[in-house]
Amino acid sequence: MILTYYVSMKKILEDLKKAFIKGNTKQLKRISNNSLDQSVLNGNKKLVTISLVSYALYKMLTKSHYRHAEGWQQFSKVVIDHLERCIQNPESIEEILGEKLVKDLAQMDEQHGRFLGDLIDKAKVKQASRAYSLGLSLSSAIELTGAERFKVYSYVGITKIHEDLPSKGIAERYKYTESILEGK
């Protein structure tokens, strides 16, 4: 886990814009994870929005069917414009990134994506799982990211998150279960 504190919202947005322009997918993913990690510790919803948008942009840049799609240049300009407006006024993150950019991403995804369910939904599930791995309960992680509950359960189930857990052992837990269900 990387837990790097950002000093200001403006700095994160500038880094995000720079990474998107350069097509730096590693940096976009890092920004997504760092923002999420920080939001787990302070509950800041703006950071969650940044995390989800960065993740969706990272995914798009790694898929050639988006990058080579008709309308990609126009879409890129819109993304940069949205980010620029947020840098000028970070208070508008939820309105511009959380609503407008998410809508633009969904539209791009609907036209050129290959799966049902858009990239933002996938980002929510992925980052809810990350928040859970950092220690939030599953429901808290779901509330923080806005992910679909059933999807998060299935996703968490195929990760290694639960392999790293202290537990009191099967024998004791099973013995107790048997005792209550047999009325002992």
């Binding site: 787990v40 510790l41 302070n42 509950g43 220690g135 939030l136 309960s137 429901s139 779901i142 509330e143």
Partner: peptide, 10 residues
């Protein structure tokens, strides 16, 4: 810092 580890449902 205060972490919202638990949700209302739990």
């Amino acid at each position: 810092p205060r972490m919202h580890i638990l949700h209302r449902g739990e």
